[in-house]
Design a protein around this nucleic acid. Structure first.
Length: 470
RNA sequence: GUGGCUAUAGCUCAGUUGGCUAGAGCGCGAGGUUGUGAUCCUUGAGGUCGCGGGUUCGAGUCCCGUUAGCCACCCCA
């Protein structure tokens, strides 16, 4: 365009940073992520969960319907780009000072997708249906320690069984993961509660059904607010019934059933034992499953998501310093809400960000070499020339042959003929064996772990390390 | 969305009360020595000091703005 500017034809260089809250994963970092994904998947498989997957983005209404305001406010809105009418409508709404909603949302969590999937086709599966999933989720939050805008989540859900045993089966796969990465009950605590029990208790204390969910919010924040702030919020929410206020302001720190019951009004306490039955059922099953030592009953756990109906739980670092590693619970109404048959379901989600932090803090993240070995990425053999021209010429043929036979085979790209430096190259990629080509027929086979080697005919020595023929 | 802290090489950091061509270690590349993963020696690449203004004879250094990152609140995996 002859616009008279003398800008050079080549546009100026511009550098881009990754968007806020996202991660660029270079080989070592991706290997660490794969290691976690591998542990997740294996834990799910061991416990009999089958992997499913769904779309990265959904209709926005899928989340506005049931997820609760917390998550809805963090949605990344998405347009198709071809739907100019929708883009314009949102622009107009914003211009009028209204809130606009995009037609699509990047998934902030997977549970609504799973409930939608089950509502659509769940009838064809035998019950209970045990599904696991892992993949990226997106939330437009301000990043900080343990929190990003794009993160990985692992979900395990058990659909079609409303029993306490089902609740505990889901908790058990979560604990199974922790055990598989070397964590101990002293490191992490699984705090559980029941919304149904909590609901009947607060009703006994004078809170009506309409205010039940705001009562849960208050209980969830007990540890973070002082009595005055709690009381102020309670009045604001219209949940200032005397009995409930006393319960809300009971001493902090102790979280078990006895402490909670002692803080309740007498007439409520009288009925409490029968009201507590759902929780005692869970406790029994925790014993049966052998994971009780990981778990604490905690009346402060209510969970933010609006769709939880029964048992709820959160997994926290024992010191309580860090945010939740995982959280979940029972959502018996969600599938019906999405047009399916009334179906009980329970599940949890675990994020990779906090889990990685915990593993690092505890020194449980394996070395990069160990991770590569765990993932089957360790080179089987490293091919080296002894520096003679006839050996140099054979490197490519050896590589091709070994690879064709199923070996992970590598070579050096350095120009040096120094065997020591080439072995250093082999060691730095953690190759299991090194093959030094000595002549047209002979090689030295070096066991890099044992630091032993033999020299002889190639056909004979390589036969030792080749995988058995199928 | 609110607040605090930080910003010099890929990484970890020096850089004096403002003063010559901005440094080190590690890592990366090349070469040498010892036919075997170590050690050692030589050498190279890589930075408009986050970006934009201002003060000054002179700014990596002082001031303002901005962006990004980290941390906390909020919320949550």
């Amino acid at each position: 365009m002859p616009d008279g500017t003398d800008k050079p034809a080549s546009s100026p260089k511009r550098s881009f940073a990754a968007p806020t809250g996202t991660r660029d994963l270079y080989p070592l970092e991706l290997a660490r992520r794969r290691w976690i994904e591998d542990k997740w998947r294996k834990s799910a498989v061991r416990h009999g969960f089958e992997e499913v997957d769904g779309p990265t983005f959904e209709h926005t209404e899928l989340y506005t319907a049931k997820s609760g305001d917390g998550i809805v406010g963090e949605i990344f809105s998405t347009f198709s780009g071809k739907d100019e009418a929708a883009v314009k409508a949102m622009g107009d709404a914003l211009a009028r000072g209204e809130k606009g909603a995009a037609p699509y949302a990047l998934r902030p969590e997977f549970t609504p997708t799973l409930a939608r999937m089950f509502a659509a086709r769940g009838g064809q599966f035998s019950k209970p249906c045990k599904w696991s999933w892992q993949g990226p989720c997106y939330r437009a939050e301000r990043p900080q320690r343990g929190r990003l805008r794009e993160f990985l989540q692992w979900n395990c859900d058990l659909i079609g069984d409303g029993s306490a045993a089902a609740d505990v089966e889901v908790m058990a796969v979560c604990v199974g993961l922790l055990e598989s990465v070397g964590l101990k009950p002293a490191d992490l605590r699984l705090r559980f509660n029941s919304r149904r029990v909590l609901g009947s208790l607060v009703r006994e204390m004078g809170v009506d059904a309409e205010h039940e969910s705001t009562a849960f919010v208050l209980l969830d924040r007990r540890d973070k607010l002082d009595d005055d702030a709690l009381e102020a919020m309670a009045f604001e929410f219209g949940t200032s019934d005397f009995g409930f206020l006393q319960f809300l302001k009971r001493p902090r720190g102790r979280t078990g059933a006895d402490e909670a019951l002692n803080a309740m009004p007498l007439d409520a306490r009288a009925k409490a034992n029968s009201l507590l039955e759902p929780i005692t059922a869970v406790s029994r099953e925790l014993q049966n499953a052998g994971i009780a030592e990981w778990c604490d009953l905690d009346f402060n756990v209510a969970r933010g998501l609006a769709y939880y109906t029964g048992t709820v739980f959160e997994l926290h670092e024992a010191s309580g310093a860090m945010r939740a590693v995982a959280g979940g619970g029972r959502y018996d109404n969600l599938i019906e809400t999405f047009g399916g048959p009334p179906t009980p379901a329970v599940g949890f989600g675990m994020g990779d960000v906090v889990l990685s932090l915990v593993l690092q803090d505890k020194g449980l993240m394996p070395s990069d070499k160990q991770i590569a070995a765990d993932l089957g990425l360790r080179p089987d053999v490293f091919v080296i020339s002894n520096g003679q021209p006839e050996s140099d010429a054979l490197v490519g043929a050896y590589l091709a042959d070994l690879r064709r036979k199923g070996m992970h085979a590598r070579r050096s790209y350095k120009t040096t003929k120094n065997v020591g430096k080439l072995l250093q190259d082999a060691a730095s990629c953690n190759a299991r064996y090194a093959v030094i080509i000595e002549s047209a027929t002979d090689v030295t086979l070096k066991d890099m772990d044992a630091n032993t080697q033999d020299k002889g005919p190639a056909s004979e020595l390589l036969a030792r390390i080749l995988p058995p023929p199928r």
